[in-house]
Design a protein around this nucleic acid. Structure first.
Lengths: 222, 222, 222, 222
DNA sequence: CATGAATGAGGCTTCATTCAT
DNA sequence: GATGAATGAAGCCTCATTCAT
């Protein structure tokens, strides 16, 4: 069954694979709850450990620091999304349909996925929207990049870029457009929830967001 | 003289207007240096005070915390930009030219402006690109919004939105497109410097960035 | 009055001169109590702050870490001793008497000195004996040496070395003998208290220690 | 064969004889490497386990803590040295030659000894010089003494003391002189490497060190 | 016997802030 | 108004140790 396809998140973000132990999975699920609730700035391993009924030291066995933990979660999302796009478009040949599917998935909350019962997809989507950009907006982005922290993002971007080029092989800015599509989907949702005067999208109106991004994309590629 | 047009940054971000004292101006100029150098996460009032040859207590007279200081600086940029767009397009009637001018200004480093000798515009532009989004990607964005922290961003967005509507009064997503233009300009520069596989723009190739954004904008509006 | 002669301990060991504030003096006197009581390994700034009724943060304003604090105290001793030797031998011309005086002072507990009411000289002497060598027996001894951490020891050693050369200008190992005298005095007291089979000196029998060291010194120089 | 003479290090320092298993020998050899490299303060069982490719728990089966491990290594040195002195002087009758041999061995790096291929003698000698005193300069020296932690040092001291008394049976401070000889040899080497103004011995000039100590010893005994 | 996982405790350090001058 | 000193709280991290296999 295709939906059973699984994936490995880059191990560079963690010291020990959290999906391979009960404690590790609890770290993931509780950190998603806590990040969603209090945000990255207020999030600490001490609070996480308290919420989990464990200790900071135990968390440190899995993740060097909270930034690495966020990198892991965001990578999980990027991997999951790329996977989803591939699965959903598997039997289709229309490049346009594939691109539409990608935008659809980007603009909608993560579908609950029973393969990952330790991930609350709705909350993780909120984290992506509110904290996602912070994985790269840091001073040592270059060092982290060298460690492969953004390979999944690049993979996703490359996938979308190829769909764009399938539609119009002569389009010059396929990578830029791909990353713009990704960032815009998340940004516009954030704005719709918190700064409505920066968007025309209403809160939870994912259809409208999709329409905006799809029209922008289609127009740009011609 | 038009170039003498000045502006007031929203006072909600600061306890005391930093432009009205020598110390205040030194806080602004040194914090720009330091933020550019070490980034927001590593930036503290202690380090700032040390760099200034002053004390933390003195900084606290002007800004409640480092986040408010960043809000002040980013607001300064938004005000300055809106101002620049207005000045540069003052004598022109073409809506398209005006929009092109806005994109040009967004995609280029801030021009050194002798009215603000305490601002190093090149460094501030770097800060906008690397740290700008962090002013709103916080848990208490709604509270800050109520205090008016983002009025300047909304003003800028509204200005661009109107230019869009001047060109095509029927376009449905003028605000979304406006904020997308703004965010994309900054994002693509960041990617060009740190994550080149997410963009087609080369480092410092502002012309190429402009071309991408302008084409995207024009295509989208029709 | 000669006995009023004072001195400044090298400031490289501290961030802020502890003798110039009440808090600083309390740090010195309480750290002497605590180091004497529990030893360097068990000593922490947290315990010191607790004993002082203050906070770790306050201690950190004066000393970077416990090692620097020990360096300060040991330097204080070396300065005090050199001073004492100079004062006590001021009016004398016999080099041999001077050397005898130096050994006498090295082999005896520090005399209570009213110029430094915040120093418990008896306890500081215990610290010198038990912890003194640890100021240089560390991996970054070379870096600390460059910062001048051992200038006072070198000064003391140089003083004794000169006394040796006054007695026998042809003696080849005056510096080695000087440092041997210093270290031996402290070592033998430690052994007399804890490992009596390594010494012939009985506990608190400073006369016997003096006799041993003086005889060794005199014989060696001839 | 005399050179095959072996010895047992006091078992009080360890929970399980490290020389009787492969893992135990690797603990010894890797801890010598690591102590030489980073010093006792920075040394932890975690780092040791990492360097060995083993786990902290495994190390704990052999040694209670890093201090006990150091005690073991230093005792090994003391036993080895006493052994060496005995072997080297076995066929000789001159007490003076024997004392000279002892000083020679104390003042020189440990000779590589093929009976102990898991001991890097050069590095162990460095550890003795830099960390040796720390085995007794601790608060619970008396308790450790009762457990027999310093029997080997006392044995070595007693041996040298007897050589001294062989030369001059009336000398009053043979134990003090013996411990002074031992400590001075190590101290002067440390000074020659790190604090040259405290010694006349040049780095690696073991001949000069021997000359100094031998002259001091001979003069003192008469 | 050896190991991998987990943890309680505490170390060191800095932050953000207040107080007194 | 500006500053220097002090501090409470908390962050981040590591250590030493135990447990279960």
């Amino acid at each position: 069954m295709l939906s059973n396809v699984t994936f490995k998140v880059s191990q560079s973000a963690c010291l020990k694979d959290p999906t391979e132990s009960e404690l590790g999975k609890r770290i993931l699920s509780e950190s998603i709850n806590l990040l969603d609730e209090i945000g990255l700035e207020q999030f600490t391993f001490k609070k996480l450990a308290l919420a989990m009924g464990s200790t900071e030291a135990s968390v440190y066995r899995y993740f060097e620091n909270k930034h690495k933990l966020l990198v892991y979660l965001v990578n999980w999302y990027w991997c999951w999304l790329q996977n989803r796009i591939l699965i959903t478009t598997y039997n289709h040949s229309s490049a346009f349909f594939k691109l539409e599917t990608a935008i659809d998935l980007l603009a909608s909350p993560i579908k609950q996925d029973d393969n990952f019962e330790f991930i609350d997809e709705k909350k993780l989507y909120n984290i992506i929207i509110s904290e996602g950009a912070k994985v790269y907006l840091v001073k040592d982005v270059d060092a982290e990049n060298n460690e492969g922290a953004f390979l999944a993002y690049k993979g996703l971007c490359s996938l979308i870029s190829k769909l764009i080029l399938n539609i119009n092989p002569k389009y010059k800015h396929s990578h830029s457009l791909a990353s713009t599509i990704i960032e815009t989907c998340h940004n516009q949702i954030f704005f719709s929830e918190h700064l409505p005067r920066l968007t025309d999208v209403s809160e939870d109106d994912h259809e409208s967001l999709k329409e905006f991004v799809l029209h922008l994309t289609a127009s740009t590629i011609q």
